[in-house]
Design a binder for these strands. Structure first.
Lengths: 198, 198
DNA sequence: CCTACCGATCGGTAGG
DNA sequence: CCTACCGATCGGTAGG
C-alpha cells in the first residue's frame, strides 16, 4: 500500500491496471471509477493522463495485436520448412499468452467494443495474423509436407482456436510450463496437418 | 413491425431477444432498456415476466450448457470406437453452434458474470463437458487407436479450443455448410490424435 | 403492460 | 492530482 510500485509513468500504470480489469470484468463491465480506485487516485484525476475510456482499450488492443502480429509475420517469412515454422509460431503464441493472460483476453474478446477507425484497424490486424498462419499452411501443402487434402482454412481456424483457448485453462503456476505446453500443443496440432504420422 | 411474431410466450420472446443482445454486446454491455426496446415494451414492463437481469443470463447459459452437455455425454457413453465417437461429438458441437451462434457466444463467454450459486453451477457443467471429451480421448489411447504419447489434457483443450472458436468464423450463409465444416474439422483434429496417419 | 418514479452510478469536465 | 459537479443513464419498483 505505502510502497510505491511506480517503475513506469503514471500513464503506463493506468494502462496496466486497465488491462487487468478489462481482462477480468470486460470493457463494458469496468468503470473508470474501478480503474481509478485500483490506481489509487480519484476518478477525475485519470483524465490528466488519458483521453477517455476507449483510448485505453484501443491502446491495449493495438499493442497486443502488434505483438502477436510481428512474431507471426517474422516466423512465416522464414525459409524453414512449414512444419518447423508452424511449431515455432505455436510455441511463441503460447509464450505470449503465458506472459500476460489478461492482455490476451482483452486482445481476443474486447476489441469488439472499439468503434470507427479503431475498430477497422483491429479487423485488419486480425486478418493479417490469420494470413501469416495461412501462408505457413499453404507452403506446407505445396511442399508436400502437409496432407494434400487438408482444408487450409479449416486447419488454420482449428489451430487459432486451440491457441486462443489457451488463456482459458493455462496457468503459469501450473505443473507444466509454457514451453512444454507449447511443445505438446504443437505435437497434436502438427500431426493433424502432416502427410505421414509419427 | 405490425406483424405479430409471437409464436411463443412473452417470456420466451424476452429470452430470445436477450440471447441475441447478450451475444452481440455482452451481458454488461446490454441494458434492460435495450432488451425492452427490442421486445417492444417499456423497460418496467419486462419485470412482469422476469425477475431481473441475472435471471435472464442464468437461464440462457444453463439451457445452453445443458444442450451441449447432454449431447456430449450421450456420445461419450456409446460403445463405438473412440475415433468414431470423437468425430460425432465434433460434428454435433458444430451443428449446435450453427443453430445459434449468439447463444453459443453467451454460453462460452458471458457465464463469468453470473454470481453465487448460478456461477458455481456453470463451473460444474463446464467441467462435465470437458470430462466427456476426456473420456473419449482416454478410451482412444487405452484401446491403442490414439497415440500412446498423446497428452490427454492438452489434446482435449486443443479440440475444445478449435470447437469454441467456430462461432468466431462460421457463418450458416457461407459456402460450406455446418455438416461439411464439422467433417473437415473432425478430419484435422482426429488425425492429430490417431496412432497412424491416413 | 403503462405511468411515473427511485436512488445509485455512469463517463467526463471546470477550475484550481 | 483534488474538489465539486454535470447531464445521462442504470436496474428496478409502486400502483394501477
Amino acid at each position: 500500500m505505502s510502497t510505491r510500485e511506480k517503475l513506469n509513468t503514471p500513464r503506463e500504470h493506468i494502462l496496466e491496471v486497465a488491462t487487468h480489469l478489462f481482462g477480468e470484468k470486460g470493457y463494458t463491465g469496468t468503470t473508470m471509477r474501478d480503474i481509478a480506485s485500483a490506481v489509487g487516485v480519484l476518478p477525475g484525476s485519470l483524465y490528466a493522463h488519458i483521453d477517455g475510456k476507449e483510448t485505453l482499450l484501443t491502446e491495449i488492443v493495438d499493442a497486443g495485436f502488434d505483438h502477436f502480429l510481428a512474431t507471426a509475420a517474422e516466423i512465416a517469412s522464414t525459409s524453414a520448412p512449414a512444419d518447423e515454422r508452424l511449431r515455432r509460431a505455436i510455441k511463441e503464441h503460447v509464450k505470449a499468452v503465458a506472459d500476460s493472460r489478461e492482455r490476451t483476453m482483452v486482445v481476443l474478446h474486447q476489441w469488439r467494443f472499439l468503434t470507427g477507425a479503431n475498430y477497422d484497424a483491429v479487423i485488419e490486424k486480425r486478418r493479417d495474423y490469420q494470413e501469416s498462419f495461412e501462408r505457413i499452411v499453404d507452403d506446407g501443402v505445396e511442399s508436400g509436407i502437409f496432407r494434400p487434402d487438408l482444408d487450409r482454412h479449416v486447419a488454420v481456424f482449428a489451430i487459432l482456436g486451440a491457441l486462443n483457448w489457451v488463456p482459458e485453462w493455462f496457468s503459469p503456476e501450473g505443473p507444466v510450463g509454457a514451453e512444454e505446453v507449447g511443445e505438446r500443443l504443437a505435437d497434436t496440432l502438427l500431426q493433424g496437418c502432416m502427410s505421414h504420422g509419427g
